[in-house]
Nucleic acid binder design. Structure first.
Length: 105
DNA sequence: GGCTTGACCACGC
DNA sequence: CGCGTGGCCAAGC
């Protein structure tokens, strides 16, 4: 589209920033949205530049947020009313069926 | 130039 | 989506 977003990192940040409150996207979906399959690269970018975006709206395909940030993300999910699914062993996961945001639709 | 790392995904059990 | 294995892609050295 534009030359202002020709950086891989900038595209990821733009997609994440486009996710509305209460919705989440998987790394693979973000990668596919920018026209790539580099789900891992998306995560790496988030780890470096995620401080400037709503990184908690980007999770894995299993519905589990970053291993070192699950408690941080949880507080954001409660604040954004994101649908959560609590597991019997005390853990939780985002309800992808309800919270998964699709830019294609 | 190539090798290693990484907030991953799809598939099989 | 419980767990383990292989593979794709991009950035850093």
């Amino acid at each position: 589209m534009n030359a202002i977003n020709d950086d891989f990192v900038t595209r990821v940040l733009a997609v994440v920033d486009a996710i509305p409150a209460g919705h989440v996207m998987t790394y693979g979906d973000v990668a596919a949205t920018i026209g790539s399959r580099a789900a891992r690269a998306v995560g790496t970018v988030m780890a470096r530049y995620g401080s400037d975006v709503t990184w908690w709206r980007v999770i894995r395909a299993g519905g589990h947020p970053p291993v070192c940030h699950e408690d941080q993300a949880l507080e954001h999910y409660e604040a954004e009313s994101t649908p959560l699914r609590w597991m019997p062993d005390g853990s939780y996961r985002v309800d992808l069926k309800l919270a998964r945001f699709r830019p294609s639709a």
